[in-house]
């Protein structure tokens, strides 16, 4: 939020009381957000996903693992709106329940990446010097590998299961978060409020986490929401490759993998999970873009 008005708002109140100035600022941001179509559409999609995931067991008409060989590979019908898969399971139910896996991994890995990445980035940016050099070179090294390859390697070492996917993806996305956190912290550390904190004799730890960090949140949030989309894609990819969710879990990637052989005879087996992935990824991407428009006027992509 290191934007325009009132430098005083930049100074995070140590007690986190919301001042009038802050209230006004939030109200203004929300107004901008509401008028940003991209952001609103993204938010709507993400909220839909969250609601579906929360109430998935109520929405899904069938069990996700119950097989029925007599009804295998059936085309979409009223009874099975998305058709059935090669073992007669209801694809609609599986896609609905699959949203939980996707969101669980998407959010889980980004929370992990945020926790580590933000700390590393902000400390690095604030401290500078050798600390900065060492931390950032380590991050650069990790970034030198293509994300999916790095995730694959980690998965091979950890063994395939969903929690390991979260670990692997948290590991992969940490450097991206750290870079953003660092550059934000770099510009923040020369601000007057930091100077004043230093002159008050606050400890480094206090300044980094209570003063600098809150002011770096805007770019971090933008980065995180976009990375959630990447993480969901990565989960689908890993599951597709057999290194993520294990059958009979209804991971979208896994569903596409097992439906791949039926592309010609039962295309609905990959179309619906594929659409679900696309829907979720577009949602988070639009939300991320919208947030950036609102929070970071420098790259304003909307009006004028």
């Amino acid at each position: 939020m290191a934007t325009d008005a009132g430098t005083e708002t930049k100074r995070a109140d140590s007690s986190f009381r919301i001042t009038t100035a802050q209230k006004e600022r939030y109200a203004r941001l929300w107004r901008q957000f509401r008028h940003n179509t991209k952001a609103m559409v993204g938010l709507a999609i993400v909220l839909t996903l969250v609601v579906v995931a929360l109430f998935a067991p109520l929405i899904a008409p069938y069990s996700v693992s119950e097989t029925n060989i007599d009804a295998r590979s059936e085309a979409p019908s009223l009874q099975h709106p998305f058709g059935t898969d090669e073992l007669g399971r209801d694809i609609f139910s599986r896609v609905v329940l699959g949203s939980r896996i996707s969101l669980y991994v998407g959010f889980g890995s980004i929370v992990g990446a945020l926790a580590v990445g933000t700390t590393v980035g902000v400390v690095s940016g604030y401290a500078g010097g050798m600390v900065d050099e060492v931390l950032m070179r380590v991050m650069d090294a990790a970034m030198a590998f293509p994300p999916i390859l790095l995730a694959l390697t980690v998965m091979v070492v950890l063994g395939p299961n969903l929690n390991n996917v979260i670990l692997a993806l948290a590991f992969v996305y940490t450097p991206y978060i750290a870079r953003v956190g660092r550059s934000a912290a770099l510009s923040e550390r020369n601000e007057e409020y930091v100077e004043s904190a230093v002159s008050r004799g606050e400890s480094d730890g206090y300044i980094v986490f209570k003063e600098v960090l809150p002011n770096c949140m805007a770019p971090l949030l933008v980065q995180a929401s976009i990375n959630v989309a990447f993480a969901m894609l990565a989960e689908a990819s890993l599951s597709f490759l057999g290194l993520g969710a294990q059958p009979p879990k209804p991971s979208w990637g896994l569903m596409i993998n097992s439906g791949r052989g039926f592309m010609q005879t039962a295309p609905w087996m990959i179309i619906f999970p594929g659409l679900a992935i696309a829907f979720a990824v577009i949602g988070f991407n639009m939300l991320g873009d919208g947030l950036r428009d609102v929070l970071d006027p420098k790259v304003d992509t909307v009006e004028s």
Binding site: S65, E66, T67, L87, G242, Q246, P247, P248
Partner: peptide
């Protein structure tokens, strides 16, 4: 086959956790 076996066995209280 494993998914059908695991599905049916779970009704008997036997959980077979598939690991590919």
């Amino acid at each position: 086959a494993a998914q059908v076996i695991a599905d049916q066995a779970s009704e008997a209280g036997i959980e077979l956790n598939i690991q590919k």
